[in-house]
Amino acid sequence: MRTTLIVTAVLSVFATTASAGSFDTPYALSAIHQDFLTQLKGTADEAGEVGNAARAAVSVLEPHVELEESVVLPFLSFSEAVRGGNASVVPEIPERLERLKAELPQLLDAKTNGIGTLVDLYAVADSEGRPEIVQLAERMIWHETIDAEILYPAAVLVGQAAQASMVGTTSGATPGP
Rank of each mutant, 00 (worst) to 15 (best):
E144N: 09
E92V: 08
F14H: 08
T4V: 11
E149N: 08
L73A: 09
G172D: 05
H143L: 07
I146P: 02
P177Y: 07
P131S: 03
V72W: 01
P153C: 01
E103F: 01
Q163H: 11
L100E: 05
A57I: 04
A164L: 11
H33R: 03
S79N: 10
R96W: 06
G114R: 01
L67W: 07
A9F: 06
T117Y: 00
S165A: 13
G114Q: 04
M166G: 15
T145K: 07
A110L: 11
F75T: 02
P26N: 07
N52Q: 15
P74N: 03
V82P: 00
S22P: 03
H33K: 07
E138R: 15
I6T: 10
G84L: 15
H33S: 02
A44Q: 05
M140K: 08
S70E: 14
G48T: 03
L107H: 00
Q39A: 10
A164S: 12
D120P: 01
V167E: 13
L76C: 04
P91V: 11
V124M: 03
D109Q: 14
I32N: 09
I133S: 04
T170D: 13
T8M: 10
E98M: 09
I93Y: 02
A87F: 05
A53W: 00
A81W: 10
E49I: 04
R139E: 15
E98N: 11
